[in-house]
Design a protein around this nucleic acid. Sequence first.
DNA 1: CCAAAAGTGTTGCAATTACACCCATGC
DNA 2: GCATGGGTGTAATTGCAACACTTTTGG
Lengths: 256, 256
Amino acid sequence: MTRRPAPHLLSRKDLERFFARDIDRHIPHLILDCAVFGFHNSDLKVLLIKWKGMNIWSMPGGYVRKTEPLDAAANRILQVHTGLRNVHLRQFHTFSGLNTSQRPVKQFYAKLGIRVPADAWPLKRLVAVGYYALVDFLRVRPSADYMADTCAWYGVDDRPRLAFDHEEILQSAREALRATLDVPSAGATLLPSRFTMPELQRLHEAILGRQLDRRNFQKKMLDRGDIERLAERRRGGAHRAPFLYRFRSGRAGDPL
Amino acid sequence: MTRRPAPHLLSRKDLERFFARDIDRHIPHLILDCAVFGFHNSDLKVLLIKWKGMNIWSMPGGYVRKTEPLDAAANRILQVHTGLRNVHLRQFHTFSGLNTSQRPVKQFYAKLGIRVPADAWPLKRLVAVGYYALVDFLRVRPSADYMADTCAWYGVDDRPRLAFDHEEILQSAREALRATLDVPSAGATLLPSRFTMPELQRLHEAILGRQLDRRNFQKKMLDRGDIERLAERRRGGAHRAPFLYRFRSGRAGDPL
DNA sequence: CCAAAAGTGTTGCAATTACACCCATGC
DNA sequence: GCATGGGTGTAATTGCAACACTTTTGG
């Protein structure tokens, strides 16, 4: 994961131009929604956005350009809100978007004073391609664009209720994440490059939603052979200083 | 799975009406493609369609109506080509559809003498939602509509080369199928309601692509507790007559 | 009666789970 | 010095893989 200044946060002018012209450069009735997971203080976090001036919370999302691959769109959308590039992303499901017809999107744009044609497709049914992203919590700079009051981390089990079908999408994303936990990449991208064994264990526990045995966990991780112990230990905490580890293979998405 | 007369095979008139009017009732730039799997003579089969008058093979697909859930669209598309309703269906991935811009779709409609506007979205990029279906081979009546010369079963490893991104989609469908083989539903829907243990085993072997041990397989299946042995045996074959089994729970999609 | 497929049970290995003791550190 | 968390090894269990003999059937 590389942090760069977010290249282009949506401004009011962008938004006006979108409905005036840019809308035709996008695939109509298609949206890409992204559950961004981070890990901090033993808790699994998710990045949420509050819509400007409304009591609506959702996960980051965006439209797909007509010549843009889905994965590229996911990366672009993610970069806007996190400042990160080449994040670990995975498509997990596509949602019909039919229970979302009552979305107060029209009122939202009216409140902002943006002219939107009554039959514009962003006001209608949106088929949503769901992605989840695993990011290093500390490297993310949550960025709210013109449409948002706030963009911030919340505990996945301690957060505002999400609008539209985003409760379902988040639920589904967590299940997909759980299913792919056996691959090393999950830990590799959710943790800083150097981490302790208890940290890695609490991450797994947060994703799986149950406690694990300390000794068995350590054995399993080390037997897998993809992490290595460093000479250094983590100082400063109370109690015995734990060893630091790092993933052996180049971490996916790290800068070259 | 219920067999009914296919309610509506696409006719020439339907096709003309689609481009004249019905196209606006569908979600633009979105297609739903379906890998239909069957099992026969120890072989995993897939249902393929040859485009009328062209050397193009693909899996069944279709467009999604504006008020139609994705699962419903998949069921509808499937019913057209197989005559089956309430088939075991599973969405597995959504494809960008960008490598398919060179599709000879324009020539196809020209050959058929159907007027299609040059900028109509079915000629452009199509994001494809991929489903796979598991069906009882013997109950399927493959039906070719007006756009197709033939609709027929082929061995998944002994078939024409597929056009567009359908090779990738089929590949991906097989992997998704393999991953969900541990759930009983796979066997339950690919086999007739009564089957023998060797039949079930050969099905699993076909999906997994490797041989399994006869004794361990039988133990595992019976321990799972979802199939039961019937008093009857399958007669007529050479050699010792094998027992018949059936799935315990009501098979998904069976008529009430 | 014989070839070929179907039915059954046991044994060994590997992976997972359970569990107890010692060590280091900050207060 | 003591409470708290971190580091390590061993025994028990469970699940999976390997394996051989008997039974049935048609020809």
